[in-house]
Nucleic acid binder design. Structure first.
Lengths: 130, 130
DNA sequence: ATCAGTGCAAACCATTTGCAAATTA
DNA sequence: TAATTTGCAAATGGTTTGCACTGAT
């Protein structure tokens, strides 16, 4: 019961596999391009629809980059966390640090601001690219 | 010397005035709409070009919202700081808290991540809308 | 046999750009 | 007048949608 629709299709498997393979943010266009090489191609609209599908199920996380383009990465957004993005290799590291949440909370006292949500993003160079 | 072009034109004055009037993020379309009421209208492309102009001079700050639309607010981005955005009235409060910068720095030790930049955004309800 | 998923092309929407006319210095 | 700025319309580029067809259950 409660099992919502979810056909297992080739496009979904291909896209999921691609995202699972690398811990970084991909744009829809990037995913589409990558799949062109593979045997069975996937249309760009299917890429978008699949990403939306995965997003709804909480299987991937999305972020909009500076240019306004949406990008997606495989990481369970269940637990609230932040991202550290390596600007060299693009690697994404999940950062779940209670200190940060505590800090965010202190905003309330300092600025009289009732916090509902917060977002932090760190960019730099990861251990490997440093 | 060093005085780059900078004509004082009506569109620039109108847009600057509008942004200065309210401490919140405006989209280009919103600004354009607002100026339609005023006596002298301004084309949407001029709104975009003016925003770009102000951005280059560091007179405004920009952010891309969840939908991918760019929004702009009047605040001097000279000092690094973050924004607390009231989700009721949209008011933007600059948050310059050294504690946060320190926290961001600690990322280096904790995750072996060499930090180049970071971004934090808080949304909730401001003192007035709480 | 159904209902969900796909491809394609067209539609959308925010943003950008070319160019001639208008404006500022 | 020389250089910048504006308006308009057309071009972009990412994302969405309608619809007939294909594929999964």
């Amino acid at each position: 019961m409660g099992t919502r629709s979810a056909y297992v299709t080739k496009p979904r498997e291909q896209i999921t596999a691609l995202l699972r393979a690398e811990p970084r943010f991909f744009s829809a266009a990037e995913i589409h391009r990558r799949l062109e090489d593979e045997a069975s191609k996937v249309s760009l609209s299917t890429v978008y629809r699949t990403l939306e599908h995965l997003l709804e199920r909480g299987e991937i996380a999305a972020r909009v980059d500076e240019s306004g383009e949406s990008t997606y990465t495989m990481c369970a957004p269940e637990r609230h966390h932040h991202h550290a993005i390596c600007r060299v290799c693009g690697r994404v590291e999940d950062v779940t640090c209670s200190t940060m949440d505590q800090l965010a909370e202190s905003l309330r006292q300092l600025h009289g601001f009732e916090l509902d949500d917060h977002k932090m993003e760190f960019s730099g160079r990861c251990r490997a690219c440093r």
